[in-house]
Design a protein around this nucleic acid. Structure first.
Lengths: 195, 195
DNA sequence: GAAATAAGTCAACATGGCTGACATAACCGA
DNA sequence: TCGGTTATGTCAGCCATGTTGACTTATTTC
């Protein structure tokens, strides 16, 4: 691993740190630019490792992170439409199609025509799909639980406000709507095993 | 956008929400599984949008997110070695090589042989590189500043603890070391423009 | 009945990961 | 000084997952 532990400043000159006052004139001390960039880095590292455990598991199934994303949302918000998934993931129909088809072919997800609008394809996890989704979620939940504990009391509320505010303002209603939607069992024929 | 605002539960049956008590027997109320998964989703949405603004800018330069990552770390921690970058990004030498070469060829990054170990290639941003890095960072800093504000007082400390704890325990020393390392100017010949 | 909508499909391409093999230069210890 | 290790670079090819553009089918809606 070529130690990266000793402080890694191998240059020769002085560290040109002029303490450039970050923002404009403002009371209540705006967070200085440098500190904001630290959070940017921390977010990168956090997300990097957040995805690591499931990525490893996915390999055993010849799936990738894209499959995980689809399976997660289908599982947590089952009954959603293809169009919903496109908005959530912000990818093209063709990209989604590829991974979704694989999930369907391998029996992790089933589709069902919408009741009110039969053009719609509502998506549901099968038992197998639910099982995999839970297995993938487990290490992430663990990680989150520990991080919340480490963050201390009040962390949940703070974090929720922070993360929600990180989302594009225009999209916050969608996100709220998605997160509010409960899982729903498929019609019957019940190929998914509705508990 | 095919409204996704009305709650998206188009299924037919009852929402099988048995309030499955998440963990084992524990006082101090462990965060229930469902809530943890909400945080997982929020993190996904937050990161999705966190990368959006720079991604759009990068297009104008025919660069991708990979270039952004490299440029960011070279800029913030200039003087780091290729090996450091590999640890940070957790990608292969060959993957890094591709984007790094482009950044060098187009004059955003310069290399310099290490003083103590001339095998090492220390990486520095050029003026041009610094400018692009700052331009890419700007919308992200803005987003972070607003999110921190929205998260309320104490958010910085809470968030820092949370994010640090999200990182793999084994890698936390490296991350700390990286974040502690100040930018350093190149030797001279000073192709980077050392302020 | 015509237009709009939801979904699916084909084809081609770009980015950025990966593995494996190998080359060069420099360092370091015996 | 020589031989092994290390840091970096490079060639070649593969795979996952994103993209655009064009087009079909079924269904709903006006």
């Amino acid at each position: 691993m070529t130690d990266l532990n000793e402080p890694l400043a191998r240059g020769e000159k002085a560290p040109e740190t002029k303490p450039r006052g970050a923002g404009g004139p403002a009371r209540k001390r705006p967070v200085p630019e440098a500190k904001l960039l630290e959070f940017a880095e921390l977010l990168f590292f956090a997300y990097r490792d957040f995805t690591r455990d499931p990525d490893a598991i996915l390999k055993d199934f010849s799936f990738g992170r894209a499959h995980h994303r689809v399976l997660h949302f289908v599982n947590r918000h089952s009954g959603l439409r293809v169009a919903d998934l496109l908005v959530i993931l912000t990818i093209t129909k063709q990209s989604l199609s590829r991974v979704l088809k694989q999930l369907i072919d391998k029996g992790y997800v089933v589709q069902q025509a919408g009741a009110s609008d039969r053009r719609e394809r509502l998506l549901f996890p099968t038992d197998k799909g639910r099982a995999l989704a839970e297995r993938l979620a487990a290490p992430q939940s663990l990680r989150l639980a520990e991080a919340l504990k480490a963050a201390g009391p009040g962390a949940e509320a703070v974090l929720r406000r922070f993360l929600e505010s990180m989302v594009n303002a225009e999209e916050r209603p969608q996100v709220s709507s998605i997160m509010a939607s409960s899982p729903v069992a498929p019609k019957t024929g019940d190929k998914g095993g509705g508990s």
